[in-house]
């Protein structure tokens, strides 16, 4: 059984790790959301190296980019993007966040503080038309990801699978994987053919993040509910023994 081999100390140092001073009890509602998801396979060499020892990689190793263009939230309108490595926590399908970028200071601060996203402020744009969707992420003057997705096909509202999010963060329990489990309520879903025009793995947490083959992409118009954190996991123990309720 494969498990992650990344050093937790190195991850904590390199991933813009957030700090949660106290676990919140309030759910957060995001309205008028456009969510672009791109899934890509990676090379075998990155399979275990990107994950902490508590998580299992998928075969083949895979990563995803999710861009959320949020029209309404307690922190105002914002756009965010997260890069996640597909994995398993115990038997559950999850994505381990290596980096997140958010377009506003307020949203970035709250996403770090409440949910442990390793978020930084950047220019994040998502444009969707009838023929294509584009997304660009510019951080400190450098374009670190560019996505172009074309040829949208209508899908049913429940045809896209979003896996739960695991953010490595400092928490009141110590360094933990924080389980964020957004509920997506889509009103329109399209599947597209995507290409990653550019992607700078190092800027997203590791040069080993190399999308070798784009598998799929989708765009959902939806609302998103992010429940308050219920569980965290010790990053050095398998989920069967390392999961803690908060």
């Amino acid at each position: 059984m494969l498990v992650g081999s990344a050093s937790i100390d190195v991850l904590l140092r390199d991933l813009a790790t957030a700090t949660i001073d106290a676990f919140g009890t309030q759910d957060v509602e995001l309205g008028a959301v456009a969510c672009l998801q791109v899934v890509a396979e990676m090379r075998k060499r990155s399979r275990e190296a990107l994950l902490p020892p508590s998580l299992h990689p998928t075969i083949p190793p895979a990563m995803s980019l999710q861009v959320w263009d949020v029209g309404a939230s307690p922190w105002g309108a914002f756009t965010m993007v997260m890069c996640r490595v597909s994995c398993r926590s115990g038997v559950r399908a999850r994505g381990f966040t290596t980096a997140a970028f958010v377009s506003t200071e307020a949203a970035c601060r709250e996403l770090r503080r409440q949910f442990g996203f390793p978020a930084r402020v950047a220019d994040v744009s998502l444009r969707h038309g009838y023929d294509r969707v584009t997304a660009t992420v510019t951080f400190e003057g450098n374009v670190i990801a560019q996505v172009e997705a074309i040829d949208p096909e209508p899908m049913a509202n429940d045809d896209v699978q979003y896996t739960g999010i695991l953010n490595l963060a400092h928490t009141p329990n110590g360094a933990r994987l924080v389980q964020v489990e957004p509920h997506h309520h889509a009103t329109r879903v399209e599947r597209l053919r995507a290409a990653l025009r550019s992607f700078d793995g190092a800027a997203w947490g590791s040069a080993l993040l190399e999308p070798a083959f784009v598998v799929s992409s989708s765009l959902a118009l939806e609302s998103v509910e992010i429940p308050a954190i219920r569980f965290v996991c010790k990053p050095d123990q398998l989920a069967f023994t390392g999961t803690e309720a908060v």
Partner: peptide, 14 residues
């Protein structure tokens, strides 16, 4: 079994 990479996770489809 749970560690297999299921189609639905990678590819939106009916």
């Amino acid at each position: 079994n749970a560690h297999l990479y299921w189609t639905r996770e990678a590819y939106p489809t009916r």
